[in-house]
Simulated assay, not measured.
Amino acid sequence: MPRKEKKSIPAEQLELYEKLVESIPELEINSTFGFPYTSLNGHMFSLLSKSGFVGIRLPKQERETFLKKYNSTIYKPEPGPLLKEYVTVPNDLLTDIETLKKYLSISLEYVKTLKPKPAKKKK
């Protein structure tokens, strides 16, 4: 049986995602699950899929506005389930760090309102 080829994230998208996260000094990138993401209090709020697509978690009103304004879709990583609170960042918008910084800041403020998830005990 042939081995599955490990898909690596496109370098250009990874670099742009890193620049976006670095634009907000209090954030840092995690990669516990094999892909880069941001989280706070156990809640992920942005990620970069292995296919090179960025997803940002937004509250309902901002999410609806983003979807219409950028002709975007609800985020679905490959493989994985639909992430209903996340929007897919169009690749051409990924180069506009200032615009995306605004949305990432909104996302950060949104997850600050969520109840922290309890830490999992290490075995």
Rank of each mutant, 00 (worst) to 15 (best):
V111M: 07
K121H: 11
T113L: 04
E64F: 05
E18A: 13
G52C: 05
L83S: 08
F53H: 07
E78N: 10
P79H: 01
Y110G: 00
L14S: 09
Q13S: 15
M44H: 02
L14G: 06
L48N: 01
E85Q: 14
I24P: 02
V89M: 02
S107K: 05
K76L: 04
Y86C: 04
E62P: 03
K6S: 03
K50D: 00
K102R: 11
N41F: 12
I56D: 04
M44S: 08
P36Y: 01
I29N: 04
V21Q: 07
L82D: 09
I97T: 15
T88R: 07
K101S: 14
D92P: 10
T65M: 05
K50W: 00
L114S: 06
K60M: 11
L58N: 10
S31I: 02
V21D: 09
E26D: 02
Q61G: 06
S39G: 04
T73H: 06
E5T: 06
D92S: 13
E18W: 02
L47I: 08
T99A: 13
L67K: 02
T88S: 14
K68P: 01
E109H: 09
Y17T: 00
T73C: 03
E64K: 12
F33P: 02
Y75I: 06
L16H: 07
E5G: 06
A119I: 11
E109R: 09
S39T: 06
E98S: 14
I74D: 09
E15Y: 00
K76G: 03
S39Q: 14
G34C: 00
L82S: 08
E5A: 10
P90Q: 09
K121G: 14
P118T: 14
H43N: 08
K6T: 06
V21N: 11
Y86E: 01
K68C: 10
K120D: 07
S51N: 13
Y75V: 04
L94I: 06
A119M: 06
G55C: 05
K115S: 07
Y86W: 15
N71A: 14
L82M: 13
A119T: 10
P2R: 11
N71F: 12
K115C: 01
E22K: 15
P2C: 03
D96P: 06
L47C: 15
L16T: 01
Y37N: 10
P79Y: 00
K117L: 15
V111H: 05
N30F: 15
T113S: 10
R3I: 00
E18V: 08
L114A: 07
H43T: 04
I29S: 01
F35M: 03
T65I: 11
E12P: 00
S72D: 04
L100W: 13
K102E: 07
K101C: 02
P118D: 01
N71M: 09
D96K: 14
